[in-house]
């Protein structure tokens, strides 16, 4: 299980969730963090995010070669959390449109509203998805609805 920040931290603001649980030689996430909130002590260690130092900026998500980092923000609204996912496909979804929200197994768990589409110069774009709070740890991908 990935180390999920405690409830208190989750409700303080956006935070990065690292789903890289296998020992492989890799550490660009640690290099990318401007607050040194991610530690990869030895190159084969799994990254550890110090949630209290993390402000959810998402730079680690942009640089992760495995696309294994996500940002979750439970302070978005009363009903919804924001899930930010890395996205390297075309076409990009339309802002304010809704898309199918997929879980880690590719199953549709509901619809998500696309709040923002951030285009990145390194081509790892970021999608901001508004989902019900209880789906924040489930939604990790999207599928465009047929009409789009």
């Amino acid at each position: 299980m990935q180390n999920i920040p405690c409830e208190e931290r989750l409700h303080k603001g956006p935070v990065a969730i690292c789903e890289c649980l296998q020992s492989i030689p890799c550490n660009p996430c640690a290099d990318a963090c401007p607050r040194q909130a991610i530690t990869v002590a030895e190159i084969n260690d799994c990254p550890v995010i110090a949630a209290d130092n993390c402000n959810g900026c998402g730079l680690c998500m942009l640089h992760c070669p495995g696309l294994a980092i996500f940002v979750v923000d439970h302070t978005y609204s009363q009903e919804q959390a924001l899930v930010k996912i890395p996205f390297e496909f075309l076409p990009l979804p339309k802002v304010n449109g809704s898309v199918e929200a997929l879980n880690r197994s590719g199953e549709c768990v509901g619809l998500a509203q696309v709040i923002r589409v951030q285009k990145s110069p390194n081509k790892t774009n970021v999608l901001w998805l508004a989902v019900p709070h209880e789906l924040a740890m489930e939604v990790r991908a999207i599928r465009l609805q047929k009409e789009q």
Binding site: P28, D31, H63, P65, T124
Partner: peptide
């Protein structure tokens, strides 16, 4: 086209 693993010395994070 994917980003590489490793450390900065091996250009990790670059495609």
């Amino acid at each position: 086209t994917h980003k590489f693993f490793g450390s900065r010395d091996e250009y990790a994070g670059e495609r």
